[in-house]
Design a protein around this nucleic acid. Structure first.
Ligand SMILES: [Mn+2]
Ligand SMILES: [Mn+2]
Ligand SMILES: [Mn+2]
Ligand SMILES: [Mn+2]
Lengths: 227, 227
DNA sequence: ATATAAGATTAGGCAGGGCTAAACTCAATA
DNA sequence: TATTGAGTTTAGCCCTGCCTAATCTTATAT
């Protein structure tokens, strides 16, 4: 298949850098900055400059001094391979091992580098080949394709719409728990009653006619699709 | 040296060295040789000398130049922690992910370093707190105690005895598969018909009166208990 | 008691990944 | 257009782990 699986698999550091570039490049025109990656991985900017050069050397990234790094096709494949593992592992931890949201991410962050392709696919089998993880992030296919994301933040919906929760941000575990407790999870339908410019509060009504006033941070943690 | 090194968990290399010392020290009066560890881990003797010094520095091993290394209490604890993880993971791979013996060990060898204590205990829970892995090796308790092994190789049993298989060596996957196919697995009873000095062949009869003539390598891969 | 070889250690390297401090770029201002 | 500071890179260093070659030690056999 790809050249990486035939050669030696990249270290966990390399993988985490690739994922960071992938995640940051989404909303930055394909390019990730030194500073952004440094912040994301809690390393110094100097370390990132160094790694960018090495990643380019390995053919995983295109890199121009002072201009940031862009994933090559091979780099993207490797990043998505890790994202697939990460999300499948998170699903397993939540559904089979009784983890809660606080704990899931760190564990997956380490395990994603230790499991083999064989493990990953058997795990997918065990889980019934899910295409989304429990909070709604799409799971890349084994072949490396990823669903295009056409959802929008709840804070950007026009009032009156009926929408369906497609995912919730997994960055803040406390918010995840809050939303989980209220069953504001992927798959649920909401009626948007009000989107208040003034303070960013979004008022929604759920399937049981329960009404919630969600502050801006929460409203931006919930992603929905029209229709 | 500082208190941080006390807290930070050992790298996977350190852990594998500790396990190697533990495994080799069993039948060497508590001490593992440079050469033995080097062979076991497929590294050069020079690397082992170097690591022995570092392990002593970390308080995990007692080391005398030219004399080999012995685990300290802390070293033993760490080794057993890894052995526990390793055996629980192997059990999971075999019973829940449909692995066969060929593949199990390598995967566990990597995963044992990536999982947390929390993961390990939840996995134990999922598996029903097994005290032996599928081929009969005892699983150390979470507190670090390990069953004393009073079993003997089938090749050392006196003819006529009725014995019970307690474990099978997991070093050679082909033998494991051979024994598994014939249901010569932990828990089974055998009647020892003959132990032939000449060629080391051991003839046994199983519960279904099936008779097997096992060559020396196989006979030494099967461990049994009297009673 | 001594020679010898197996085993072990030292010496000297190298690559991967980190760090801090100092120097440099470049884009946005004044 | 000149200045300036945020962002980046470079320089120089550190630690982990691994290697080969050269040099011991030690146990054993003479
Ligand atoms: Mn996730
Ligand atoms: Mn990771
Ligand atoms: Mn085992
Ligand atoms: Mn290991």
């Amino acid at each position: 298949m790809n050249d990486l699986s035939e050669t030696r698999s990249p270290s966990s550091s390399v993988g985490d850098y690739l994922k960071a570039v992938w995640e940051l490049a989404v909303d930055s025109g394909g390019t990730a900055s030194t500073k952004g990656v440094a912040a994301r991985l809690s390393v110094s900017p100097a370390s990132v400059s160094n790694m960018f050069a090495r990643l380019q050397e390995m053919g995983l990234v295109r890199y121009e001094r002072y201009r940031g790094a862009t994933l090559t096709e091979r780099g993207r494949e490797e990043a998505l391979r890790l994202v697939r593992r990460h999300r499948l592992i998170e699903t397993f931890l939540l559904e089979h091992l009784g983890y809660d949201w606080q704990e899931v991410h760190d564990e997956a962050e380490r395990l994603e580098h230790a499991v083999s392709d064989g493990f990953t696919e058997r795990l997918a089998e065990l889980l019934g080949h899910p295409d989304h993880d429990p909070h709604g992030d799409p799971i890349p296919s084994a072949e490396g394709s990823l669903e295009v994301d056409d959802s929008m933040a709840l804070s950007q919906v026009v009032a009156g719409r009926r929408v369906r929760i497609s995912k919730v941000r997994d960055e803040d575990a406390a918010m995840l728990d809050y939303l989980g407790d209220r069953n504001l999870v992927p798959g649920r339908w909401l009626r948007v009653r009000e989107v208040r410019e003034l303070d960013g509060v979004v008022v929604v009504e759920d399937e049981e006619a329960e009404v919630y006033a969600l502050g801006d941070p929460l409203a931006r943690s919930i992603f929905v699709r029209n229709d």
